[in-house]
Amino acid sequence: MTIESVSRRALLKSLSMGAVAGSVLRVIPMQAAEAAHHMIAAEKADAKGGAYIPKYFDAHQYKTLQSLCETIFPADADAGGAIEAGAPEFIDLLTSENTELQATLGGGMKWLETTCSTRNGKAYLDCTAEQQKAILDQIAFRKNFEQDPALLEPIEFFILLRNMTADAFFTSKIGIKYLGYKGNTFLTEFPGCPPVPGI
């Protein structure tokens, strides 16, 4: 095992553990996430056709993952969405290194397919927009657990997916730009604080 591969694994492990622990008070520095984005970019640059090959999800699940991520953070007038930010690759790469993520995300994905098949007789991606919305509205809100305790795992799945999509988006180039983060630049002069309206 080379030094590069050891540090690559260690890095992905610590990132994925952060995703499991997830809390505002326990932020993992952006450099670690950027390294994951860089790994993905390097893999795409090397691959024929420039495509990322999913490490954990199978081809169909990966397409579903892309659709879910984009639904969580869609493109709008101000910025691209989760797919352009590289969220599906980021989530798949981290999941491939962490069994807890595998259990929650892998399990949730199976639940989604089974439920779509039972209810609508087709895969999630083949459901109509209304059918997709109906199922997501069930699992995207904690309050639905009160009425239907069987939704616990699907709700936890969606919470994790939403958090990881946000992590991936806001550590990506387009996410940082969307946020308006001004730091990490050289100050050639110090103009002082900008004026605050009303003060």
Partner: peptide, 26 residues
């Protein structure tokens, strides 16, 4: 500088999905 975990609290408090959630994070 935003990092991993930064917006998880917002996502968990706001719940749901979509452009509104993205804007709330911002």
């Amino acid at each position: 500088m935003p990092g991993v975990g930064w917006f998880n609290g917002v996502c968990e408090d706001e719940e749901g999905y979509g452009v509104g959630l993205k804007q709330k994070c911002r």
